Computed example of a mutant assay.
Amino acid sequence: MAFEIGIMTFGELTEDPATGALPSPRRRVRETIEQARVADEVGLDVFGVGEHHRTDFVGSAPAILLAAAAEQTKSIRLTSAVTVLGSEDPVRVWEQFATIDLLSRGRAEIIAGRGSYTESFPLFGYDLRDYADLFREKLDLLLKIREQNPLTWEGDFRAPLVDADIAPRADGATLPIWVGVGGSPASAVSTGRLGLPMALALLLGPMTFHEQTVGLYRESAAEAGHDAAALPISINAHGYVGRTSRQARDVMYPYFARGMAENNHQRGKGFLLSRAAFDAQSSPGSGLLVGSSQEIIEKLLAYHELYGLNRAMIQMGFGGLPQQEHLEAIERLGTEVAPVVRREVAALERRAA
């Protein structure tokens, strides 16, 4: 299975730590589309947009941003990262992403997740006490929509469907649906049982953070009769590809630290990350994908060996990294990192066959 490398963004609006300037929403959405275009031009495999419903993010409607990206790109896959499915209508999610699939000639996919930010639930009239049940039921409906049309279905949280004609259909035979997992054992088990691809999120911590998660996922998949070795797994992590190791850390740190402090307030009062802690999280055994091209190559290969990954998505602009530095990092990822990682992984798989 080919190893895919891509980028993702939340489209956050964060004050520049050097100038104090706050980018406008218009500027940020235009920059997001430019990032997708450049990622496509340099040969990356995937571009993702996350979903947040707050004034410090522009990604409240990822499907619209991805549709715009579809018109500016030719080959790159376009995915949500993630769709907060518990507060969405699966019928509308399908309609939106099937439309993106038509626009992009079969390049759309969905990463469905529970969401680590919960502002969308009260916004759309859902009770957080139903958080887990909402996701289970809505994922079931989304998968049923993918499998059959017309559809008759009934659940607890939305009106039933009776011979419902849900259109459009995907451009190709199917629309890939992944499940985003942050480390919950129960989520890993349920995703494995369904035989769905799993997208792991790693904010901070050691590379080995998800060993139990992956183990439970594969065990539950095998018990349910799926070919566990054939199920795709992705790691979604923060990072930056610099000219040198030091330059990468010097560029990323102030913006990443500001983003952690300013854009994580729903998790408390923000997260104050010292330079020493950041450098520790950038070490070979830690999860951040920050460093020179060679360092990123080595870490991605280590991730592949550890988890049997098939995909890595890097969030490189968190905290409002200036666009020029962001685009330069995307270019390095596509031209210096991705070809080597793909070649090395392919060679490893040939030797193992």
Score class of each variant (00 low, 15 high):
residue 259 G to T: 03
residue 330 I to Y: 03
residue 29 V to K: 08
residue 307 Y to M: 05
residue 281 Q to N: 11
residue 239 G to Y: 00
residue 52 H to I: 05
residue 309 L to W: 04
residue 202 L to P: 02
residue 242 G to R: 03
residue 16 D to Q: 05
residue 156 D to N: 10
residue 296 I to F: 01
residue 44 L to I: 07
residue 304 H to C: 02
residue 68 A to M: 13
residue 301 L to A: 04
residue 103 L to R: 08
residue 287 G to H: 03
residue 320 G to Q: 06
residue 152 T to L: 08
residue 252 M to V: 12
residue 50 G to L: 05
residue 345 V to H: 04
residue 234 S to V: 02
residue 324 Q to T: 13
residue 47 F to E: 00
residue 292 S to K: 02
residue 308 G to H: 07
residue 250 D to C: 01
residue 10 F to K: 12
residue 36 A to Y: 07
residue 11 G to I: 11
residue 225 G to Q: 01
residue 258 R to M: 12
residue 318 F to I: 02
residue 288 L to V: 01
residue 147 E to L: 01
residue 262 E to L: 10
residue 176 P to I: 06
residue 189 V to W: 03
residue 342 R to Y: 06
residue 39 A to E: 07
residue 210 H to D: 06
residue 121 F to S: 08
residue 178 W to S: 04
residue 326 H to M: 12
residue 277 A to V: 09
residue 277 A to Y: 03
residue 37 R to A: 15
residue 23 P to R: 11
residue 29 V to R: 12
residue 102 L to R: 15
residue 289 L to P: 03
residue 338 A to I: 02
residue 183 G to D: 07
residue 128 L to T: 11
residue 247 Q to K: 11
residue 187 S to Q: 08
residue 82 V to T: 14
residue 352 A to N: 11
residue 175 L to T: 02
residue 218 R to C: 02
residue 30 R to L: 15
residue 185 P to C: 05
residue 61 A to F: 13
residue 95 E to S: 08
residue 59 G to M: 10
residue 9 T to D: 11
residue 130 D to V: 04
residue 346 A to T: 09
residue 79 T to F: 10
residue 303 Y to S: 09
residue 17 P to E: 09
residue 255 Y to A: 04
residue 257 A to I: 06
residue 22 L to H: 06
residue 241 V to C: 15
residue 38 V to F: 05
residue 307 Y to A: 06
residue 313 M to T: 14
